[in-house]
Write a protein that binds this DNA or RNA. Structure first.
Lengths: 342, 342
DNA sequence: TCGCGCACGTAGACCGGTCTACGCAAGCTA
DNA sequence: TAGCTTGCGTAGACCGGTCTACGTGCGCGA
């Protein structure tokens, strides 16, 4: 019995020989290059099919493009990110690009390492979802590689950006609660650490909360707990708001995660939702839709964001140098967690 | 003002020149190769630091390794996968490897394309999480690249595998329910499509369910709804089981997702959990822990799985040819969704 | 008929690493 | 002292693509 021979991969030279043309010709056909006759295109395409040839990304990357888009995210276990990816992939498949993802984690050290890894792998473009790293570093990366930042409000001429219109989204929530008759409405926001370049998104949501309160003459009722957007942060924030007297009749949590923590705290105290307290979140994660949760929240269209991101990145790769900034209009999703105060 | 010059990347030649040695020498130092004196190692390392050199993966891949592990998963929005990744990355960082992820989707067509993309990108190893593609194809891939399959029970000498011990896990759930006094216990499983290479995991869970029922003299109470492991599948399965008379007092859903669907259906019918019906799932997704859900379920240690996967892949890359198969023992997590029948 | 531009192909340098083959010096053995 | 091994370092081929520079043939206007 012969040793299981590790078959050599089909290369561009094999195709060229098989079709009776030069390597350069094959390369041109693959890339839809200029100066290829109809006859040759057919010959080469047939040879490619017959041999089952697929170009090797590493070799292409060395001189030309890698046809790869790198996506950097903190964690992958977030359904909203899956939506973004779906939209992105949809946009990239046709022109032959692939999206690869990498986890950056929650420290800027690990995020930096992940980012470097993408650069070292010669990706043609980078999509960064809510990155931690500072603006200066972002701009430095963007000088080398087409870059798009999703979910951060600090625009820059160096890179494109897509954000949810957090002002509009927060207004939707607040107007909804106030229309239901709530006056004592609390808010849970994300405490920015000192020295860390501020991600403005939580601030915008908090500011809008305060502005809408003031606009309705509720300045005295403003109550903000600054913890974090995590479930645990929501829990702590709720504890803080519940200790006030009189306690709020509604809580607008800056994220669904936090809202889940709020629900947990209320559950612990035997308070019913929405009977004793209305709760609203932000992001419309999949959990929010479940009947046992039924959270009123704000929906961002991840699919549209992903598609837009793909389109913008391709444009950049094709040579656009001016910056593009998109803002996606969110939509309020009303569920059972909010009602009129009793 | 000078045009923003796109600075050329530092290459191995730059380092070599700076340190006054040859390219080959630098290469050897980077790879901890044989035949390097202490003095030269220091000289070269200093030069690398001073110039901020990082090797380019594409160039390395062409001749040697890419120092990249590819991870193929259906979707990224699954918290359990994040755990696996965390364990994997932990294991790969020290030896200088990076993990990149790619979404395969739920069709074997799209999964195949994603898999090819990883191969074309010259990854040194592939981790496939619950792949759809057939065993023959897996073996073909494994012949070319070190491969590890996670979450599938069909072993092969061609690739390594890691599975949750579904038999033990299902036993834990069933023994728990029976010990609480349940006799009419329904099960929701995943219907295997014809012709599609069967993923054995749902079958094992279903078979164990039936076996335990029989072992306790409950053969007549066996009630299985074959839908799917999704939330919607759980919903449909619950509808099916609820239409029986008398209806079960407990449902063991094959996955947490499905269990969520069960909860939704019960909620719709005004049935309380666990008062009217106990519900158990499998996987211990993060939602299961929330107080509003509080689902009894089975926990698989994703972190351990990821770390093991990393270790096995590195071994394969280093030359191991014999296959390794790991089985991770799961743990029952009891929450409020199960109780004695009333 | 000459000159020119255009369409189509090709040869070969090149990208940035790795790896093989080899040179050289020092130490050790016979 | 010759011969051999061992340790350290280098030159240059090589990986599989892309890209530039150039050659060739053809049509067309002057």
């Amino acid at each position: 019995m012969v040793a299981p021979e590790r078959r050599r991969r089909v290369t561009i030279s094999d195709v060229a020989k098989h079709a009776g043309v030069s390597k350069a010709a094959v390369s041109k056909v693959i890339r839809n290059g200029y100066g290829v006759s109809e006859a040759m295109r057919d010959r080469v395409k047939r040879a490619i099919d017959e041999l089952g040839y697929r170009p090797q990304a590493a070799a292409r990357a060395l001189r030309g493009r890698s046809y790869t888009i790198g996506v950097l995210m903190r964690h992958i276990g977030i359904p909203f990110y899956a939506e973004i990816m779906t939209g992105l992939v949809e946009q990239l498949t046709e022109p032959g690009y692939q999206a690869i993802m990498i986890q950056g984690g929650t420290h800027d050290k690990t995020e930096k390492r992940a980012l470097d890894a993408l650069i070292d792998r010669q990706v043609d473009g980078i999509l960064m979802i809510a990155p931690l790293v500072g603006r200066t570093q972002l701009e430095q990366v963007a000088r080398e590689i087409p870059t798009l930042v999703l979910g951060r409000h600090d625009r820059s001429p160096a890179y494109d950006s897509i954000v949810d219109d957090d002002r509009t989204g927060s207004e939707l929530v607040m107007e909804h609660l106030i229309a239901r008759g709530h006056r004592r409405i609390g808010h849970i926001t994300f405490r920015q650490e000192h020295g860390r370049p501020a991600d403005q998104m939580p601030r915008i949501r908090a500011e809008t909360y305060e502005r809408v309160m003031r606009d309705h003459g509720l300045a005295d009722e403003i109550a903000v707990a600054a913890t974090s957007y995590s479930e645990e942060g929501g829990y702590r924030g709720a504890r803080e708001l519940l200790s006030r007297s009189p306690r709020p009749t509604a809580i607008f949590a800056g994220s669904d995660e936090a809202a889940l923590g709020v629900l947990a705290a209320l559950h612990e105290d035997g308070l019913s939702v929405p009977g004793d307290m209305s709760v609203a979140g932000y992001d419309n994660t999949r959990l929010a839709a479940h009947p046992h949760i039924a959270l009123t929240t704000v929906n961002q269209d991840g699919d549209v964001m992903g598609r837009t991101a793909g389109r913008l990145l391709l444009e950049r790769i094709e040579g656009r140098t001016s910056a593009a900034h998109f803002s996606v209009i969110p939509r309020l999703v009303v569920r059972r967690s909010t009602a009129s105060p009793s």
